[in-house]
């Protein structure tokens, strides 16, 4: 993040002049772009609920970045684990859904078809469901409405 890189390609591999201190365990950053992240967001929320809540409670305790490094590493590892699982088990569905999101301004509503395929696959293989908290009782969640008013105009 936010590292200056000269516009001319370097001949030697890049070496961070100010790396993290040695006593902090290393964790591979996720490196996933916004489309796949948005596509996987509800599954990350379902799969990593405990780690995420733990981290946010820790941040509530103290805003110092040093305070929650351990919890943060757990959050990142859990998300990376989920993304890897998605890519192993539902490669095609996942890829179709996030490329649809990228073609549609990262809106969910034009991409219901690939989304349903992905949700089905993830439920069968990983047992995770997409639930939107706060949906009014007795109403179909918006991602399961068969004939919505807002949908893709172009067929």
């Amino acid at each position: 993040m936010n590292i200056f890189r000269p516009p001319v390609p370097e001949t030697t591999p890049y070496k961070d002049p100010t790396p993290l201190p040695e006593n902090v365990p290393k964790v591979t950053e996720l490196g996933t772009t916004s489309g796949p992240l948005k596509s996987a967001s509800f599954f990350i929320g379902a799969h990593c609920k405990e780690f995420n809540e733990d981290f946010m409670l820790c941040k509530e305790e103290n805003k110092d970045p040093e305070h929650c490094l351990k919890e943060g590493r757990r959050v990142t590892r859990c998300a990376a684990d989920l993304i890897n699982k998605l890519r192993e088990n539902c490669t095609k569905e996942f890829e179709e859904h996030w490329s649809c999101l990228e073609y549609n301004n990262q809106e969910f509503y034009p991409c219901r078809k690939p989304e349903r395929a992905l949700n089905k696959c993830v439920f069968e293989k990983l047992g995770l469901t997409k639930t939107i908290p706060g949906t009014p009782e007795g109403k179909t969640p918006i991602h399961e409405v068969e004939n919505p008013i807002f949908k893709r105009q172009q067929k």
Binding site: L20, L37, I44, G45
Partner: peptide
């Protein structure tokens, strides 16, 4: 909610960089 689920992840990454 899709954004809320991603907040801890992004904050954790930013925190490591800030640290």
């Amino acid at each position: 909610w899709s954004r809320l689920h991603l907040v801890p992840l992004l904050v954790a990454e930013g925190d490591r960089d800030a640290y």
